[in-house]
Each structure stands twice: as C-alpha cells, then as structure tokens.
C-alpha cells in the first residue's frame, strides 16, 4: 500500500535538509505538531504522519493482531525511514511515540542522529520500585471513559459534535479530522499504550537523546522523565515550565526553543545526564 496514503504523510521544509520526523501520541494525530513543526521547515525536511488508525491514516490498514504491541508502530516508523531513504534522522516523539521512537531506534540505530522524547514514559503502571503514576484499574477506567465518550461519537456524529460554530476560523479540515478515531481502534491503542513496559529498552539507545519534561504532567510525572534520562546513556533532561502533557500545544514557543537548542546544535551540547 502507498506509504503516503497509509500514514497521511506530509513532507515540507527544505528538500535537501536533515530529515526531522514528528510523531504524535495516543488520542491525537499530526495536528498536535501544528504550532511546532513549521518552525523547523527553514533548515529541515519535516516529515509529519499519522499512526495507522489515527487521524487521516488509512484505517483499513489497521489490524488488531498486528497493532497489539508498540513494536508494530515502531516498525511503521522504520518503514517510513527506510522507504523514504532517510538518514541522519531527527525523531521527535510525543507521549507514547517517544517509546515508539526508542523501539525504532533499536531496529535501525544507524539511521538516527537525534531523538527528542516529549513527555516520555516507559511504563505507566506502578511496579515494584517504580512509580509510573497509575494503577492497572486506572487504565480500565480510561477505557470506560473512551466508551462513554464515543457513545455519542459515532462516525457520522463526530464532525457535527466537534464542529464549533462559534469559531469557524478554526477550519473544517481540523474539526473533521482531529481525534477522529474508530472507537475500537482507540480502545486497542489505549491498551497498547498504557499497558506497555519498555523500561528494558532504554539502556540500549545509542542515539543522543533529549528528554523534554513538563511540570505537573499527570501522565508522565517528573520522576518518570528523570528515570528515562537516567537510563538512556547519551541523554539530556530539560524541564519545561509548561504544564500538562501536551507542551506542543500549550507552550509551543518554549517547546520549539528547547527542541531547536538540541537539534540545531552542531556539537553535542550540555552535559549528558546518566552514566
């Protein structure tokens, strides 16, 4: 199948620039990067995509068995990188896509130049000696929450409900596509996301990595961000003033500046955290 259609790939910026891939997290699509990605189009070849099953991806390519683990999402990233023949890639992953990037880097580390992990969490559920922030019960509650919210969100209804007559300027394209996910796929993706455990993968990352940590992030608390930065050998932790889990939307300038400082630096900058 056509890669472009499968992932609703959108490529912009300098055609000969260093490739920079932005990956969205659970619950959203590539629109999450609309206030950040354009800032890199001057120097970089910017690649935006939707995970299969999200946004405007080809949801007929979604297979419940295949996408039962984050590995499948990572394989999709690898496929994008190899089919577009990208080298020296800067990968920016938000939320669950941070770990998807980590897994992709483990497959083709030679293709990656830098990783930027925004609000990463290698495991959301508490474990012995590890605080992820959630209990398994909480994840089931999220699934219930998805169910009760999709109840009124049938495919036909979604555009009408999400359309905002008060602010037509926000654009039809956005209201129609944003967060529009098949309820069954959303449930499956939620399960894969929040029940995953990728702690063991962190130490194997060889690419220089920036961990962007928000303040008061209920999904990925500061301790978790620190845990990630401690485990990835060549990594830097930057704490943002931005609060919540989506600094790419709530504080795009600060987020952009932090990413730019890391990816535009020709020499490795700052003292790497960790062993």
């Amino acid at each position: 199948m056509d890669l472009q259609q499968r992932h609703h790939l959108r490529i912009s910026g300098r055609p000969d620039g260093q490739p920079m891939i932005f990956a969205h997290g659970f619950g959203c699509d590539q629109n999450m990067w609309r206030h950040v990605a354009p800032a890199f189009e001057d120097d970089f070849r910017v690649v935006l995509f939707d995970h299969v099953g999200a946004g405007n991806s080809d949801s007929s390519a979604y297979d419940f068995d295949r996408y039962a683990s984050l590995k499948a999402y990572a394989d999709d990233v690898v496929r994008i990188v190899t089919e577009l023949d990208l080298h020296d890639v800067v990968f920016v992953g938000h939320s669950v896509s941070a770990m998807i990037g980590v897994l992709a880097e483990r497959v083709v580390p030679e293709r990656f130049a830098k990783l930027v992990l925004v609000g990463p969490s290698p495991r959301y559920i508490d474990d012995e000696g590890y605080v992820g922030g959630f209990a398994e019960q909480d994840i089931h509650e999220l699934l219930d929450s998805l169910d009760s919210n999709y109840l009124g969100w049938s495919a036909a209804m979604a555009p009408a409900i999400m359309g905002n007559p008060d602010r037509p300027a926000l654009g039809q394209e956005l209201t129609e596509s944003f967060c529009r996910t098949d309820p069954d796929i959303a449930r499956a993706f939620a399960r894969v996301t929040f029940l995953s455990d990728n702690r063991a993968d962190l130490a194997a990352v060889s690419t220089p990595t920036l961990v962007l940590q928000c303040s008061n992030d209920v999904i990925a608390p500061v301790e978790v961000g620190r845990y990630v930065a401690d485990r990835i050998p060549d990594s830097t932790l930057v704490q943002l003033d931005a609060t919540g889990h989506c600094p790419n939307l709530s504080a795009p300038e600060e987020t952009t500046a932090a990413i730019a400082a890391f990816v535009r630096a020709t020499e490795p900058e700052g003292a790497p955290v960790g062993p």
Partner: peptide, 8 residues
C-alpha cells in the same frame, strides 16, 4: 485517574 488520562 482514568478521567485524567482522557483529559490529557
């Protein structure tokens, strides 16, 4: 907690 996940 589940609602927070949905919220975020």
């Amino acid at each position: 907690p589940g609602g927070r996940l949905y919220h975020e």
